[in-house]
Lab assay of single mutants.
Amino acid sequence: SEFQINEQVLASWSDSRFYPAKVTAVNKDGTYTVKFYDGVVQTVKHIHVKA
């Protein structure tokens, strides 16, 4: 599913667990740039983002 900029989502971290994050960019290659609550910004594949 498509997510929008500033949408609150759950994004997987390197430990494969999902954490609350905010979408900061929707990228043309189908990835999302997300910002976790601790301030870390990461680009993740769409399969690693869920509502």
Score class of each variant (00 low, 15 high):
Thr31Leu: 02
Ile47Cys: 13
Trp13Met: 11
Phe3Thr: 03
Val44Leu: 10
Asn27Phe: 08
Ala51Ser: 12
Asp15Val: 02
Ser14Tyr: 09
Arg17Tyr: 09
Ser16Arg: 09
Val40Arg: 14
Lys22Pro: 01
Ser1Gly: 12
Lys45Val: 08
Val40Phe: 11
Glu7Met: 12
Val49His: 05
Ala21Phe: 07
Val44Pro: 02
Asp15Glu: 09
Phe3Lys: 01
Val26Ser: 03
Ser14Asp: 13
Gln8Val: 14
Ile47Met: 12
Ser12Met: 15
Phe3Gln: 01
Glu2Thr: 12
His46Pro: 15
Ala25Ile: 07
Gln42Pro: 02
Trp13His: 09
Thr43Arg: 10
Tyr32Leu: 08
Ala11Met: 04
Ile47Arg: 08
Asp15Asn: 09
Lys45Ser: 15
Ile47Asp: 14
Asp38Arg: 07
Gly39Val: 04
Thr33Phe: 04
Ile5Val: 13
Asp29Thr: 01
Ser16Phe: 07
Lys35Gly: 02
Lys28His: 11
Val40Glu: 11
Ala25Glu: 06
Lys50Arg: 12
Gln4Ile: 07
Lys50Phe: 09
Ala21Glu: 03
Val23Asp: 00
Val26Gly: 01
Lys28Leu: 11
Gly39Thr: 03
Tyr32Ser: 00
Tyr19Phe: 10
Thr33Asn: 07
Phe36His: 00
Thr31Glu: 02
Ser1Tyr: 14
Asp15Ile: 04
Gly30Arg: 04
Val34Glu: 00
Val49Gln: 06
Thr24Gln: 09
Thr31His: 01
Gln4Gly: 09
Tyr19Trp: 10
Gln4Arg: 12
Glu7Ala: 08
Val41Gly: 05
Val41Leu: 09
Ala11Lys: 02
Asp15Ala: 03
Val34Trp: 03
Gly30Ser: 01
Pro20Tyr: 09
Ser12Tyr: 14
Lys22Val: 15
Thr31Gly: 02
Gln42Arg: 15
Ala11Gln: 02
Phe36Gln: 00
Lys28Met: 11
Ile5Asn: 04
Glu7His: 05
Gly39His: 05
Asp29Cys: 04
Asn6Val: 04
Val40Ala: 12
Thr43Asp: 09
Val41Phe: 08
Asp38Lys: 07
Glu2Tyr: 12
Ser16Met: 08
Ala11Glu: 01
Ser1Asp: 10
Ser12Arg: 15
Ser12Cys: 15
Lys22Glu: 10
Val26Leu: 07
Gly39Arg: 05
Lys45Ile: 10
Trp13Gly: 10
Val44Ala: 02
Asp29Ser: 01
Tyr19Asp: 00
Gly39Gln: 02
Arg17Met: 11
Gln4Met: 10
Phe36Pro: 00
Lys22Gly: 03
Gln4Cys: 11
Ser16Cys: 14
Gly30Pro: 00
Val41Ala: 03
Thr24Met: 15
Lys28Pro: 14
Trp13Thr: 07
Ile5Arg: 04
Ser16Tyr: 07
Thr43Tyr: 05
Val49Lys: 15
Ala11Gly: 02
Ser12Ile: 15
Phe3Glu: 03
Glu2Asn: 12
Ser12His: 10
Thr33Gln: 10
His46Ile: 11
Asp29Arg: 01
Ile47Trp: 12
Asn6Ile: 06
Val26Trp: 06
Thr33Pro: 00
Tyr37Glu: 13
Asn27Val: 01
Asn27Gly: 06
Gly30Cys: 07
Gln8Gly: 06
Thr24Asp: 02
Val9Tyr: 03
Ile47Leu: 11
Ala11Arg: 01
Lys28Asp: 13
Glu2Lys: 14
Val40Ser: 15
Val41Ile: 13
Val9Gly: 01
Lys22Ala: 08
Thr31Gln: 01
Trp13Ser: 08
Lys50Gln: 10
Phe36Asn: 00
Tyr19Thr: 03
Asn27Gln: 03
Trp13Phe: 12
Gly30Val: 03
Gly39Trp: 07
Lys35Met: 15
Lys35Gln: 15
Val23Gln: 00
Phe18Ile: 04
Val26Lys: 08
Lys45His: 12
Gln8Asp: 14
Phe3Val: 04
Leu10Asn: 03
Ser14Val: 11
Asn6Pro: 04
Gln4Lys: 13
Thr24Leu: 15
Asp15Tyr: 06
Tyr37His: 10
Lys35Cys: 10
Val26Ala: 06
Ser1Pro: 13
Asp38Ile: 08
Tyr37Pro: 06
Thr33Arg: 05
Lys22Thr: 15
Ile5Phe: 05
Gln42Glu: 07
Gln42Lys: 15
Val26Asp: 03
Phe18Leu: 08
Ala25Phe: 08
Ser12Trp: 14
Val49Phe: 07
Lys22Leu: 15
Ser14Gly: 15
Glu7Ile: 11
Ala25Cys: 08
Thr33Tyr: 04
His48Cys: 15
Ala21Thr: 02
Asn27Tyr: 06
His46Ser: 15
Val23Arg: 00
Thr33Gly: 02
Ser14Glu: 10
Glu2Phe: 13
Ala25Met: 08
Ile47Tyr: 11
Glu7Gln: 14
Ser16Pro: 05
Val41Arg: 02
Thr31Ala: 03
Gln8His: 14
Val49Ile: 14
Tyr19Gln: 06
Lys22Cys: 13
Ala11Asp: 00
Lys50Asp: 07
Gly30Gln: 02
Gly39Phe: 06
Lys45Leu: 14
Thr24Ser: 06
Glu2Ile: 13
Glu7Ser: 08
Asp29Tyr: 02
Gly30His: 03
Gln42Tyr: 11
Leu10Pro: 00
Val26Arg: 06
Ala51Lys: 15
Asp38Met: 09
Phe3Asp: 01
Tyr32Gln: 00
Trp13Asn: 07
Ala51Glu: 08
Val9Gln: 02
Val49Trp: 04
Thr24Gly: 01
Lys45Tyr: 11
Leu10Met: 11
Val41Cys: 07
Ser1Asn: 11
Asp29His: 03
Gly39Asp: 05
Asn27Met: 05
Val40Met: 13
Gln4Phe: 08
Ala21Trp: 05
Asn27Lys: 01
Phe36Met: 05
Tyr19Met: 11
Ser16Gly: 15
Ala51Trp: 09
Phe18Arg: 00
His48Gly: 06
His48Tyr: 14
Gln8Lys: 11
Ile5Gly: 02
Glu7Tyr: 04
Glu2Ser: 13
Ala11Asn: 01
Lys22His: 10
Val9Lys: 02
Thr31Phe: 04
Val40Thr: 15
Tyr37Val: 08
Ser12Val: 13
Val49Ala: 08
Lys45Thr: 11
Lys35Asp: 04
Ala25Gln: 09
Ser1Ala: 12
Ser14Met: 13
Ser1Cys: 14
Val9Pro: 02
Val34Arg: 00
Ile5Trp: 04
Val26Pro: 00
Pro20Asp: 04
Ala21Tyr: 05
Asn6Phe: 09
Thr31Lys: 00
Leu10Ser: 04
Gly30Phe: 06
Tyr32Thr: 00
His48Val: 07
Lys45Ala: 13
Asp38Glu: 05
Gln4Leu: 10
Val26Cys: 08
Asn27Cys: 06
Ser14Ile: 13
Pro20Met: 08
Lys28Arg: 10
Val44Cys: 09
Ala51Met: 09
His46Gln: 13
Gln42Gly: 11
Ala51Asn: 08
Ser12Lys: 15
Tyr32Met: 04
Thr31Val: 02
Leu10Tyr: 12
Ile5Leu: 11
Ser14Leu: 12
Asn27Ala: 03
Tyr19Val: 08
Gly30Ala: 01
Val49Glu: 04
Arg17Gly: 10
Val44Phe: 04
His46Asn: 14
Asn6Cys: 13
Val9Ser: 01
Val34Ile: 09
Leu10Arg: 02
Asp15Lys: 04
Lys28Cys: 08
Thr24Ile: 15
Gln42Asn: 06
Lys35Val: 14
Ser16Ile: 07
Tyr32Arg: 00
